[in-house]
Structure formats: structure tokens, C-alpha cells
């Protein structure tokens, strides 16, 4: 039975042995030899880098090959089957510049006059793509065919006409909405008279509403309504309760226990905190964070406080936009 200490000792001995052996091996080479080896390695590395760079350039940057990496529909055989390519005994000799055009392949497969099976057509295409002289085992061909078939099915799914048109519609709607919401750069406003007119109509006492082509978007989704202003039953009920509360206030204050009073006091303090947290200003034309800080705190340098309080709105302290709502902490 191997106890813990014995095991640890053995492990330590093994480790020590490896370390000393390593030291011996390292020590066996004379400084001169090691320097010479280093030089040779460096030379090989430089040559390899040069060759790699040349092939990289010809593969990715050369204009005649640019088309081969232009679209997503084209699958590079080298990329799509990394396992086969990286195998130590490369039985698959893939042409570096060979590509399989999925769209062409799809057309061939889906054409009504194609009498052969889909997989057969794909297999033929794969075989021709990797080269006639390639030595591929049946398993490897099957793998590649499977891969290409799955790629085709995903492209087919993603290219359903209704889906793509919906996506485009949504995208354009999103873009319109986002461009409306993101406000306008201060400098560009000067040249845009219509926007300037629109901005002059912004009522700062109300929530900013941005009209888009199809909907009105309220940034904070808050609706200002005067309390109990209606004459429906709910408003009447609310009014009755409010009257009751106001006449009851003195009684409830005297009857509250000490604990309840403390809780209520804490709540009231929290309201004050919240009111301060909620204070927001709308950026006007010509505003900078410094100017806003000067107005809010009387000190330009306090702009950092405002910047830090609006991390999701402000990316840079020198980039604010007209109509932006900034939180002004106390």
C-alpha cells in the first residue's frame, strides 16, 4: 500500500530526476554549439516567414484570387476540413486555391434534369475540387460530402426569400429607429434646417418623443398624467381614498410604532435620494459636458461626475448630442 508521504516522495524524486536530466542535456552543449544552433534556427525561421508571407500574399491579396474569398457561399476546402489537412500523413492533397461554389452546386443539385442523386453530384464536385490526382479514401470523401451538404442546407435555410426580405425590412426599420434615437451631432445640426426646426419645437417639460415613419417612440416610456384628473369610477375611487388619507394622516402618525416610524423615515430618505438620481437634463445646441457641469454644480471640472453617471449614453466626454437625456447626479 502506498501511503501519501511515500507517494509524494516518489513524485518528488521523479520530478527531481527529470529536472537533473534536463540540466544535463542542456549542459552537454557547449556555448559555441548552442550559439551556432541558435543562428541556424533563426535563419530557418526567417526563410520560413518569407516563404509564408509570399504564399499568404498570393493566396489572399492577389487580385486574381480575390474572388475566391469574396462570398460566404464559397467554402474553402482547406478550411472546411481542417482535420484531414492537418493529419501527419497527408493523403489528401488539397489545391490551395480550389473552392467549391455552393450556389452553383445547389443549382446543379436542384435542377430538374439532374438524374443523379444529390450526394453523388456533391461527391463529384468535391473530387474535382480537390484535384483528379488527389488520393482520398472513401471515408474522407464521405466526410467532405457530408460537410458540404450541411453547408448547403444552412445556406438554403438562410436564403429563404421571405426570411431575407423580412430581415431586410427589420434591419431598415431598426436603422431608421436607431438613427432617430441616437440624436444628431451638434455640428451637423447647423446645416440641417429641418432638424433645427424640429428641435426648436421640443418641449423640455415633457418627455422627448421621436416621430418615426410608423410609430411614436418615447425614450423612457413614461406618460405624464395629472393624478385624479378624470371623472371615471376609478378616478373617483382614487379621489375618495386620497381624501381619506389626507384627513387620516395625523391619526396614523400618532399611532405608528417606533419601528414603523423608522421604516417610514428611511423610505422618505430614499425618495430624496431617488429624486436626485432621477434628475435629468436634455442636451441643447451648443452644450458641452463642461457647460452642463458649470450650470449644475458651478464648476466646469465636475463634468467627470456627469460622464461617470451616464456610462451607457456617453462613450466619450467630448461627444454629446442634442436631445440626449443625461442623468445629473447630486
Amino acid at each position: 500500500m502506498l501511503d501519501k508521504d511515500q507517494y509524494n516522495q516518489e513524485e518528488y524524486n521523479n520530478y527531481y530526476q527529470q529536472e537533473t536530466q534536463g540540466a544535463e542535456i542542456k549542459g552537454s552543449a557547449s556555448p559555441k554549439e548552442s550559439n551556432g544552433k541558435g543562428g541556424v534556427f533563426a535563419l530557418i525561421a526567417v526563410v520560413l516567414l518569407g516563404v509564408g508571407g509570399y504564399f499568404g500574399y498570393t493566396k489572399f491579396m492577389a487580385p486574381q484570387d480575390a474572388e475566391s474569398c469574396a462570398t460566404d457561399n464559397e467554402v474553402k476546402t482547406e478550411e472546411s476540413q481542417p482535420i484531414e489537412v492537418k493529419q501527419p500523413e497527408p493523403s489528401v492533397q488539397v489545391k490551395e486555391e480550389t473552392t467549391i461554389d455552393i450556389s452553383e452546386l445547389k443549382d446543379a443539385v436542384e435542377s430538374p434534369d439532374s438524374t443523379q442523386g444529390k450526394e453523388t453530384i456533391v461527391a463529384q464536385s468535391v473530387q474535382s475540387a480537390v484535384g483528379a490526382d488527389a488520393k482520398m479514401s472513401p471515408e474522407e470523401i464521405a466526410k467532405v460530402v457530408q460537410m458540404v451538404m450541411s453547408q448547403m442546407s444552412t445556406t438554403t435555410q438562410s436564403e429563404t426569400p421571405t426570411d431575407s426580405s423580412n430581415k431586410e425590412n427589420k434591419k431598415s426599420q431598426d436603422n431608421a429607429l436607431m438613427s432617430a434615437l441616437s440624436g444628431t451631432d451638434v455640428d451637423s445640426v447647423k446645416e440641417d434646417a429641418s432638424l433645427e426646426d424640429a428641435l426648436s419645437q421640443i418641449d423640455e417639460s415633457k418627455e422627448t418623443t421621436i416621430q418615426t415613419s410608423t410609430a411614436t417612440v418615447n425614450t423612457y416610456n413614461k406618460v405624464n398624467i395629472e393624478e385624479n384628473s378624470g371623472d371615471d369610477e376609478l378616478s373617483k375611487l382614487s379621489g375618495q381614498i386620497s381624501e381619506l388619507i389626507s384627513e387620516k394622516k395625523t391619526t396614523e402618525e400618532t399611532s405608528s410604532s417606533k419601528e414603523d416610524k423608522t421604516y417610514t423615515e428611511n423610505l422618505e430618505k430614499e425618495v430624496v435620494t431617488r429624486e436626485n438620481e432621477m434628475r435629468i437634463i436634455i442636451v441643447k445646441k451648443g452644450d458641452t459636458l463642461g457647460k452642463i457641469a458649470k450650470r449644475a454644480y458651478g464648476n466646469v471640472m465636475e463634468f467627470k461626475k456627469i460622464y461617470q453617471a451616464n456610462p451607457d449614453i456617453l462613450n466619450r466626454p467630448d461627444r454629446i448630442y442634442i436631445g440626449q437625456k443625461l442623468r445629473i447626479p447630486k
Binding site: 417612440v217 425614450t219 406618460v223 384628473s229 378624470g230
Partner: peptide, 12 residues
């Protein structure tokens, strides 16, 4: 308070 209110989520 007697006014019709649309309940929706923020669209942004």
C-alpha cells in the same frame, strides 16, 4: 386618471 394609456415596452 380617466385617460387611455397604451402599455408597451420600450422599443429601443
Amino acid at each position: 386618471s380617466g385617460k387611455k394609456v397604451k402599455i408597451e415596452r420600450i422599443q429601443d
